[in-house]
Each structure stands twice: as C-alpha cells, then as structure tokens.
Design a protein around this nucleic acid. Sequence first.
DNA 1: GCCTCCATGTAATTGGTTACATGATTCT
DNA 2: AGAATCATGTAACCAATTACATGGAGGC
Lengths: 176, 176
Amino acid sequence: MTTGTLGHALLGLLAERDMTGYELTRRFDRSLAHVWSAQHSQIYPELAKLLREGLIEQSGAGARGAKRYAVTADGRAELVRWMREDEAAPGLRSETMLRVFFLWTLPPAEAARYLREEQRRHQAQLARYESYSDELSQNSPDRMARIALAAGLRSERAMAEWAGWAADELDAAASE
Amino acid sequence: MTTGTLGHALLGLLAERDMTGYELTRRFDRSLAHVWSAQHSQIYPELAKLLREGLIEQSGAGARGAKRYAVTADGRAELVRWMREDEAAPGLRSETMLRVFFLWTLPPAEAARYLREEQRRHQAQLARYESYSDELSQNSPDRMARIALAAGLRSERAMAEWAGWAADELDAAASE
DNA sequence: GCCTCCATGTAATTGGTTACATGATTCT
DNA sequence: AGAATCATGTAACCAATTACATGGAGGC
C-alpha cells in the first residue's frame, strides 16, 4: 500500500466510527489541528484512493449527496501495520523557531517583543487546552484523548515559560 | 518577493556570513535540522532564484567550481521584512503525535512500549542538546544560539517526561 | 430572496523528497 | 587504485495549499 500519512490519519479516524468526507475535514480542523492538518481538497481524492485500494468502503449515504465511509478489515490491518512501523521521525518544521535563530538581525528590544508575543500565543493555547481538559476529566470517555492532551499541555507550558525567560534575557542584555 | 520560507532561511544563514550552496546544505543538516530541513536539490534552484531576484549576489568562487554567495542590501531588507511580519503559524505536523491519537488501536502493553521508546528518543535528543550546551557556554559567542537551544532543551525535557508519565498510566491501567 | 452551513469535487501551483547524473580533490 | 568528501545541478514524483466550481437544505 503506497498510502502516505494522510491516508493513515483517515483510517485512524474512521476506525473510531464511520464518517463522511465533510465530517473528516472538520475533525482535522478541530481536534486534530495542532497535530496534522488537511483540507477537503486533499481529503476527497485520498478517500477515493483508499476506496480503490479496498482499505475503506462506502457504508451508507446521507442527505445532500453525503457519502459515509467505513474501514474494511484490510484497512484495519494496514492501520495497525503503520502504527507498528518505527522509522526515524522526519525533522519538525517550525517557521517560528526558524525566526528565533535569526532574531539577532533585529534590535534587541524588538526581538524581546517578538518573544513576548510568542509567550502570549503559547499561554493562549495552553488556556484552550486547559479548558478542554476540564470538560474531559468529568466523564473521561477516552484514556488516550487525555494522554494526547497532556502532551499538548506540557509542551505549551514549556514553550510559554521558555519564551518568557528568553524575553527577560534579551531585556536584561539591552539594559546593560 | 514571492520567496517562501526556504528562501528566507537561506537569507538568514547568509546574513551571518557568505557561504556556498554546499555549506548551506550542511548547515540545514547539522545545526538547523530540528527546525527546518532542506536538501541540496532544493537549495541550488532556490539560490538561483534569489540571485535572479537580486536578493543575493555571487561574492566569489572557491575550488572545484564552488560558488560563494552574499546577501545584498535588498536581501537584508527582505529578511527583516519577513522577520517582522506576524501571521498565524501553520499548525505543526507530527506523525509521532498523530500515532498517539490512534494508540487505542493497539493492545495497552504495546502502546506503553511505544511511549517508552518515544521517551528514550526524547532523552537521547535532550542529551545531545545538553552536550552542545556545554560547549556553547564556555565562550558564549552568540546569545541567540543559546536562546534557541534553550527552547530545544525545555521542549525535549517536557516531552520525555510526558512520554514516561503516559507509559506509566497505560501500564497501571493494564494491570488493573 | 439571501445567507449560512452542509457537501463534494477538480485544477493550478508551490513546496519538498528521491533519484539521476557528473566531476574534482583529498586521503589511504 | 579506490573510497570518501566536496561540489553542483536536473528530472520525476509526491504532498499540500489555494482557487475554482457546483449544488442542496434550513433559517431569517
């Protein structure tokens, strides 16, 4: 199966429950946005491909021409195979951190402002995760959702703290 | 200038000092690998484009047909313009975290093993950063390099701790 | 009637990886 | 002589974004 990451993401989401392309698009946009993203223009052709390969099948049709898909046995097998393969993760790409490397090209005061803005962004994301965490802990439907969310919480907290510390460093250096 | 992120990364690196395409390729591979990556097959055409646009110029020629490039005044202006623009960062893409969302498809013991392996990877990366940090603190040539490195240290530490905690959670659940 | 959301698709373009191709220099 | 490293480039392909295009259903 020459299915890439997007294909496996779709199989994973459909393994939970049957969904239409539109519903899958919303899942990427909402709960999965900070981990993987995809637009409908990429999702629909990929669903067609998974269908051709027999990894999913159409399980029904809704109103307005909606097509509902389900994972087949082959699809589940492929998902688990992918989950088990361990290859070196391709290096992350972060335009934000790339800019940090080049912050020396800006005046120190402006670089500090950039980092404070960065801190604010991470704090905002942290707050969003925390409020979602509150909802989740009430009835705890899914252990794995809590675990994935915990990664986001720790990561955002660490980055917010870093950005605050880094801005302080630059301000201290500027006032020397 | 319709230059993308790679172009700006090249401008940023060349702003430090003149370099050949080959040297730039190594910088991406070594110091910049965890932030942005690029192969020589992408770098050489991009250099040709920056040259056409007048953002860089050839500053000399080395042995074996090597071409050394320098940023022009226009190039520096474009770099600073890019540094200052603040757009919403495009969501990160992490195949590793995507798999975490789907860990419920594996038996709990295997999911825990996956997380321990994840913990090991982050610890290894953390150790690499720490040893690099030791070298750097001796003569501290560049304040910004220390700051960027600090982000890596905090992030890897947070993710290693998370993975350990998550694996414990799953092991505890499995032995219930 | 108009706006919003639901719902699916294609086309054009950009960004990025892998593979192909060549040659000089240095080290062993 | 052979291997590793330096050095540059092109071609083919895959992945992803943006723009184009269409239509149904429900609320105001």
